[in-house]
Design a protein around this nucleic acid. Sequence first.
DNA 1: AAGCTAGACAACCGCGTTCCG
DNA 2: TCGGAACGCGGTTGTCTAGCT
Length: 359
Amino acid sequence: MVRPSCDKLNVKRGHWTAEEDAKILAYVSKHGTGNWTAVPKKAGLRRCGKSCRLRWTNYLRPDLKHESFTPQEEEMIVRLHAAIGSRWSIIAQQLPGRTDNDVKNYWNTKLKKKLSEMGIDPVTHKPFSQILADYGNIGCFPKPETRTGPLNRDLKNAFMSRSEHNYPLPPQGFFMTTMASPPEVEPTQDSLLNDYENNNNSMDLLVQLQAIKLVTESSNFLNKGTGSSSSSSSPSSSICSTAAQEKSLQSFNWRDFLLEDAFLPADDPQKQETMVEFSAKDFRNQMQKNVIPQSHINNETTTATQINNGVQGKECGVVPSSGFLASSSSDSSFVEAMLDLDNEMFLEFPDLLEEPFYI
DNA sequence: AAGCTAGACAACCGCGTTCCG
DNA sequence: TCGGAACGCGGTTGTCTAGCT
């Protein structure tokens, strides 16, 4: 649609002055927000209405925080980005006082860089070494027509059941149960989103968003004709799992911040079924891990030491399923703690140090 | 002191979606 | 149902500032 852009309306651009801010604040306090196109005229500003709205939503809103991000917020951003990607507005909704622009900028300037320094691809949340390994396995894909389909069907069944029951969170055994009784109607992204509107629960939202992501990425992957339930390297990380990843679920592990990507055995149907069972459990666990309870966020006593203990398996069953608890009382940020864990990882898997990777 | 560079973040742009007459 | 206006979102660009040479 063609509409007059701001640059054709002889409007002022660039940074806002205190005087302009005062005009916006005065206008909003008197009339409230809404109909931003009328705001410049009514407030006596030579600005585009869109620009006024942005200034208000990103800077002037009274509920905004202007201090730097806390380790807990960093953790939340990383987890949510791993779960749903760059849906900044959704991520920002989980961080009171932060805007999507704040989160996006913080990700682009700080977190992305830090993850890269840790050897983790900020896009896929996988170690660079694994990406390269996956790259080498691409040639192993079977032909698309060999796909039997249970993986995708089971995933959809799980989504459907969640939608029917409107669970705040997938209950224990949820995915296993739903796989036993496949529904007849497949859910769509729309139905999932509509469901969210009826039950505005952030946990629920994340479950659904991950489901959407998984469905989207699975279908994209399959549509490209390169995927197979038996050996695909699907980006829908949580679908597939390995025994090692199952083990890692028992306590915090640096891997919690990676999107796992496993290869199902291509030649053994029995193994495939087993792997699909793992995938369902893994998916449920991933949901629980990727959504951080408020009590977790408020925890201000846990330190990086505890995290390390978790990695070493000393805290199995004690560390919450959501895993990492960053300290807000020390200077060490979440990412710094992750760097420590990264070092531990290399101690645990010295082979990784011997594998050069190129970016 | 001047010039350069990188980091941080505010602001803009274009496009998709929603609303409404 | 349709079309235009408004809104929302994610990606990108612009600007400012601190640090370095």
